[in-house]
Design a protein around this nucleic acid. Structure first.
Length: 237
DNA sequence: GCATTAATTGGTC
DNA sequence: GACCAATTAATGC
């Protein structure tokens, strides 16, 4: 395995919670306990039900966080890009992970073991505070997600998912910087791959998005936004 | 090039 | 709007 040991002090992920707090000498000993893991595309690095052993960060790459339902039905809880935390729900408890995590492309991960992280959190209030803010935001997002699944139509859910990918990963030229299969998009939107295919065909015919092979691209961001915004407005009122 | 998997399309409930 | 089936496209080996 490639032991590329990344230095937090020089990390390109300016928004990483560890990176933000990586200043100062006292932190160095803790940062030295970090491990780097190389993950191939499709490789699973957190298994739902397995005992919690630590916390991951995406150093470089993309990953999906998945919850498995009854008949092998999967729900993509979120997508993660450079600098983002994965596995934080399990932290603190001695229980099992409630989610699985799979690399969507060849990725490099940072990994802290439970004990090391615990010591860090006890030692650095600013770090702990930033973690708390992060947890609060996560809770907010998942509450919104509940609403989405309960009340949006399939078309709206697919649009919302495409906008989510657009927000998070951006778009070079006219193609999104992330590629999901129809099945994965369905798992993200909370529908079936057939419905996703049909919705994509419609959106393409309406010139709201475009496709290039399996790649997706946003053409008319304003109209797409409007469709889900109207919905949100309705829900908020 | 062949075999497997993914995407699309049409139909039923 | 989910599930199933048939066809076609894409991908891996």
């Amino acid at each position: 395995m490639l032991e590329t040991t990344t230095k937090c002090e020089q990390c390109h992920n300016a928004s990483c919670i560890i990176r933000i707090n990586a200043l100062g000498e006292e932190m160095k000993a803790f940062l030295a306990t970090k491990h780097n893991i190389q993950c191939k595309r499709g490789q699973q690095f957190i298994l739902e039900g397995a005992p919690v052993h630590g916390l991951y960060f995406v150093y470089k790459g993309k990953a999906k966080v998945v919850k498995t339902g009854f008949q092998g039905k999967e729900q993509i809880v979120r997508l993660a890009k450079d600098g983002e935390i994965i596995g934080h729900r399990g932290f603190g408890s001695r229980e099992a992970y409630q989610i699985s995590a799979v690399a969507l492309e060849d990725s490099t991960l940072c990994y802290f073991k439970n004990d090391a992280l615990k010591q860090m959190l006890l030692s650095f209030p600013k770090l702990t505070y930033d973690f708390m803010l992060f947890y609060a935001e996560e809770l907010n997002l998942s509450e919104n997600k509940v609403r989405k699944f309960a009340q949006m139509t399939v078309r709206e859910k697919v649009i919302d998912s495409i906008l989510y990918m657009y927000r998070k990963f951006g778009q070079d030229g006219d193609i999104l910087n992330i590629q999901l299969s129809r099945k994965e998009l369905a798992d993200l939107a909370g529908t079936t791959d057939e419905q996703v295919t049909r919705t994509i065909t419609s959106l393409k015919n309406e010139n709201l998005i475009r496709t290039q092979g399996k790649q997706l691209g946003v053409v008319n961001i304003e109209l797409l936004r409007r469709e889900v915004l109207e919905h949100n407005f309705f829900l908020n009122s």
